[in-house]
Design a protein around this nucleic acid. Structure first.
Lengths: 243, 243
DNA sequence: GATGGGCGTCAAGGGCGCGTCAAGGCGCAC
DNA sequence: GTGCGCCTTGACGCGCCCTTGACGCCCATC
């Protein structure tokens, strides 16, 4: 049984909260151009015009990535990097007009993740930004992938389910159904979509499978399987997981 | 808690094993220049001159970082990136003579970590390489080097296993399987992932290997091999180590 | 009140994945 | 050459899990 990996085009938000970008530059037109481009692609943009404000904004705003110009009026670029790296591992992409190799080396060794020279292509900067965010996302994953209800908890990364503290064993298909519903928690999942994601595109009409497996999941997880509180049926449409 | 980072000229090895770099390029003079520079700085250098060899070398050599030229004779660059990303998170730094912005975007979105255009400054490449290695290292660090159960203990750093005080001898493959499971302790490891990380990407479907080796590990480590407490099977899905 | 579709429940059987044992083959050290 | 691990491969039995069918209930429609 092949479970088709959903490969969606990387968006600024993976169906969750938007990615937060801190843009640090003292040239208003650069900040403005970045803000427009990033906002249009669904990012949430914070800005700072000097190093002191940048450090404060990074602490307050918890950005997912920082775009940092090196030519700031108050602090040297490597001081800003060091100030961030003292307490945060947030990816830093350095912007600079200086093409000198020693500047690049110094910034990268100070803790920057990438270095882009001005003038830069917006496409390239956005691609490097996506790469930086992707990297830090894959590392931080698996920590907060736990979804809880008053009856049971689902750990998406560990593929574990607990009910009243005890581990509940699920078969691969049971897990497949539950995983799709939990990843779309709060939203209605159409029968066709559920069948295609778990069983494959050829099974889009085998709705009887869903009845059998939803019954099994309810029997294993719900407190009152006959009156489910979390694995809900939307008659004629599909199923929904509510926490 | 601030740890005053000593800004030392980052060495290729932090008093441990040398960092392994896989250099992929079909131009001998580039490979040669990189080999000389990297070896002089304490890196261990692997080389490949086409995409097929690169994928094989990556599976066999387990490099810590890959430097990949895009203009290879046999495979397209993004194919190589995709082939690596299918089973590995190793940092990839792309080298290319093409300065076109769309090439950069394509490579980065395919999964590359950085993009350097030829001709490149050796200092800059080395700094980007240090940055890539530093990033992937900070994520992997901080794990307990010794993991214990009531039956046996695993020392990940020393590659040693003890049961009731006595050292247990493991073959290389047995260790490979155990190491992947222990590093993902508590989490389910899919059969495919386990096979790819231990045997390489070409062995993703040889699930019979796993049955043989899990049986051997259980016979050597579990108190009751027929009823394992720590090396658990999740039928149809994979295996899990529980302490 | 009759009827049909959608849903939930239960049970049976058959396939397939898993564990187990063992033999062959290859590389490597002596 | 010879012996010894170690990896690979095959055969086989067992238990679990997916599939499928039958049946009753609820509810909307007529």
């Amino acid at each position: 049984m092949t479970r088709p990996e959903v490969t969606r085009p990387a968006a600024a938000s993976a169906a969750g909260k938007p990615t937060r970008v801190l843009v640090v530059d003292d040239e208003p037109q650069i900040v403005r151009a970045l803000r427009i481009n990033l906002t249009a692609r669904g990012y949430h943009v914070l800005t700072a015009h000097d190093g002191t404000a940048a450090l404060r904004a990074a602490a307050d705003g918890k950005p997912d990535v920082v775009v940092l110009d090196l030519g700031l009026p108050d602090l040297d670029g490597s001081e800003v990097i060091a100030g961030l790296r003292g307490w945060s591992k947030v990816p830093i992409i350095v912007l600079s007009a200086r093409t000198d190799s020693t500047d690049k080396v110094r910034a990268l060794d100070a803790g920057a993740d990438d270095y882009v020279t001005k003038p830069f292509g917006m496409d390239e900067l956005l691609a490097r930004l996506r790469a930086a965010v992707r990297r830090s996302a894959t590392g931080a994953e698996g920590e907060e992938a736990v979804v809880s209800t008053e009856s049971f908890t689902v750990d998406l990364a560990a593929k574990k389910v607990r009910k009243d503290g005890a581990e509940v064993h699920l078969t691969p298909t049971e897990w497949g159904v539950l995983e799709v519903l939990v990843r779309n928690r709060g939203r209605l999942v159409a029968q066709k979509q559920l069948l295609q994601e778990v069983w494959g595109p050829a099974y889009a009409t085998e709705s009887h499978y869903l009845r059998v497996y939803l019954a099994q999941l309810r029997r294993k997880l719900e407190r009152t399987p006959a009156d489910p509180q979390h694995l809900l049926t939307e008659p004629g449409m599909g199923y929904r997981f509510e926490s």
